[in-house]
């Protein structure tokens, strides 16, 4: 009984065959699940980036402003629209409650996306392809991205960042 103490010698009770089979199968599954993670870094295309740096929020703010000034091609509402050249370092700045700037990217080109926040935590969720990364103030998270389809993508903030959190939407246009 699970509510009674055990008398010495219980370790010697042999494990039943069916239970041994189950444990073996489960162990193999666990090992496979473990191996898949490092393996995917070799064979897979989507992997969390390992490139990140420490950066003061003010510095990230300045870098984003410089980036916007350099490549600005227009405005949409209150947002600057920016069209950087292929291969460029591009910046996405989270702040309460907006993602700046609107990015215009070319399909099948690779960019180095610098993601950070200048106030509280934000979460970058790209809709509809559903890719999610955390924007942490004090950290420049560098994601190497290659858009593979054209269209308009939304950036939904998916980390609670204050009362207007649900209004924090941004935009990426891939041509």
């Amino acid at each position: 009984m699970s509510v009674q103490s055990l008398q010495p010698g219980w370790w010697k009770t042999p494990v039943h065959k069916e239970e041994r089979i189950w444990i073996t199968v489960a162990l193999i599954w666990c090992i496979l699940m473990t191996l898949i993670m490092p393996l995917w870094h070799v064979v897979g295309e989507h992997n969390p980036s390992a490139e990140y740096y420490r950066i003061a929020p003010e510095d990230f703010d300045k870098l984003t402003d410089e980036f916007i000034d350099k490549y600005k091609v227009g405005v949409e509402g209150d947002f600057a629209v920016v069209e950087p050249p292929a291969g460029a370092d591009i910046f996405l700045r989270g702040s309460q409650w907006q993602w700046d700037p609107v990015l215009k990217l070319k399909v099948n080109e690779t960019y180095r996306l610098h993601l950070s926040s200048i106030d509280v935590l934000h979460g970058m969720s790209i809709y509809p392809i559903n890719l999610n990364f955390e924007a942490v103030p004090g950290y420049d998270y560098v994601l190497t991205i290659t858009p593979t389809s054209t269209g308009t993508f939304n950036i939904i903030c998916n980390e609670f960042c204050g009362i207007s959190h649900h209004n924090m939407m941004g935009k990426i246009i891939v041509q």
Binding site: Y52, Y53, R54, I55, A56, D59, L63, D89, H114, Y139, D140
Partner: peptide
């Protein structure tokens, strides 16, 4: 041990 950003 996070490195400082080379951009700054």
């Amino acid at each position: 041990s996070t490195p400082l950003s080379p951009l700054v």
